[in-house]
C-alpha cells in the first residue's frame, strides 16, 4: 500500500462489526459507493456519521423522498429568481452562473476537502432514480448545459447509500456498488451497543431485558419486530420506572415501548397469559396496557 490510505476503524459512539469495517474500507479504497441494507434500527445512517467523525471529514446528507429527482442532487437552475432580478433590476441577470444552485451531490463534488456523502433511503425514490445517477457516481462529474460548465469532483467523496429494501434497485446500479447487509446484532454485540447508550446500567437488569427482547424477536407471529432503538428506549423506561430485574421477564412492563402494533401486543399478551395462568399471577400484566382483561 504505497499511498497512505484512509482507514476506518470505528468511532467512540458507534459499535462497528469487523465485517462492516472491512466493507467500508474496501469501498473507500476502490472509490465505489457503499450500499447498506438491513433491518430498520441497525444503524445504517449512523454509520455515515461515524465514518465522517472518525476520518474527520464533513458529512453531507442527501435525504431521498418519493418525489426526489436525480437532477436535484446535481444542480437546480433558479429561473424564478432570475426573473425577479430582471424585473426589479437587481443582480447581474446575464450571469447565469449565480442562478445555478448546486445540489447535495454537486456540493460534495466541489468541496475542497474529501467529504462523506450519505444518500439516505435511496429506495424511497422512483424506480429509475438510481439509474439516473450511474454516470455521475461512476465518473464523479456532471455537465451543466446552461453555463457550459463541467463539475468534476476535486476529491472523490466517500459515498454511503442506505436502502430499506422497499424496492429492488436496478442491476446496473448494483454492479457499481460495494454491498453490505447489516445483520441484526447478536446478543454480545447488542450488549456493547447498549453500553454506549447506558454506560452504567445494572448488569442483572440488562441481562433480563435482553433475554426478554430476543425472546420477543424470536416469536414467529410478530409483525414488526422490536429493533435496537426500541430496546434502548425500553431500558430507559425500565430504569426510570425502577423495575426489579426479576419482574422483567415475567411481566414485560412497558411493552408498548417495544411493540408498536396492536396485533403484536395481543400475540404476546396471550402467550404471557397462558404461561402465567397456572401461577395465578395475571392480575397486573402491565400498567400501560388496559385492553387486556383476565
Amino acid at each position: 500500500m504505497g499511498k497512505e490510505m484512509k482507514k476506518y476503524r470505528g468511532s467512540a459512539n458507534y459499535i462497528v462489526s469487523e465485517e462492516l469495517m472491512n466493507s467500508v474500507n474496501i469501498a473507500i479504497a476502490l472509490g465505489k459507493p457503499l450500499l447498506l441494507k438491513g433491518e430498520p434500527g441497525t444503524g445504517k445512517t449512523m454509520l455515515a456519521q461515524s465514518i465522517a467523525e472518525a476520518l474527520n471529514m464533513r458529512l453531507i446528507i442527501w435525504n431521498i423522498k418519493s418525489t426526489t429527482k436525480a437532477q436535484e442532487g446535481l444542480y437546480v437552475y433558479d429561473t424564478v429568481q432570475r426573473l425577479y432580478d430582471s424585473q426589479f433590476g437587481e443582480g447581474d441577470v446575464s450571469n447565469i452562473k449565480q442562478y445555478i444552485k448546486l445540489g447535495k451531490l454537486g456540493e460534495a463534488f466541489v468541496s475542497d476537502e474529501q467529504v462523506v456523502l450519505l444518500i439516505d433511503e435511496i429506495d424511497k425514490a422512483d424506480l429509475e432514480f438510481p439509474n439516473d445517477l450511474l454516470w455521475e457516481l461512476d465518473q464523479m462529474s456532471f455537465y451543466i448545459p446552461e453555463t457550459k460548465e463541467t463539475i468534476v469532483a476535486k476529491h472523490r467523496p466517500i459515498v454511503i447509500i442506505t436502502s430499506n429494501a422497499e424496492k429492488e434497485l436496478p442491476d446496473a446500479f448494483l454492479r457499481r456498488c460495494i454491498f453490505h447487509y447489516i445483520a441484526f446484532p447478536t446478543p454480545e454485540e447488542m450488549e456493547k451497543i447498549v453500553r454506549v447508550h447506558h454506560p452504567d446500567i445494572d448488569r442483572k437488569l440488562l441481562e433480563q431485558a435482553m433475554e426478554a427482547f430476543y425472546m420477543l424477536r424470536s416469536l414467529p407471529n410478530i409483525q414488526k419486530k422490536p429493533s435496537t432503538s426500541e430496546l434502548i428506549d425500553w431500558l430507559q423506561a425500565l430504569v426510570i420506572g425502577g423495575i426489579k430485574p426479576s419482574r422483567i421477564k415475567q411481566e414485560l412492563p412497558f411493552l408498548g415501548v417495544l411493540l408498536k402494533k396492536n396485533e403484536d401486543l395481543d400475540v404476546v399478551l396471550n402467550q404471557l397469559y397462558n404461561k402465567n395462568q397456572n401461577k395465578n399471577a395475571t392480575t397486573y400484566i402491565s400498567g400501560s396496557i388496559n385492553r387486556f382483561r383476565v
Partner: peptide, 27 residues
C-alpha cells in the same frame, strides 16, 4: 483490482468478506 490493492489482507477471511461485498448485491 481490489486484490491487487491488497484489500483482502492476505487472509482467507479477508478474502471472503472482500468477495462477498464486491460480488454479492443482495442479502
Amino acid at each position: 483490482e481490489a486484490l491487487e490493492k491488497g484489500l483482502a489482507g492476505s487472509s482467507l477471511t479477508g478474502f471472503y468478506y472482500l468477495c462477498r461485498s464486491v460480488l454479492v448485491k443482495t442479502e
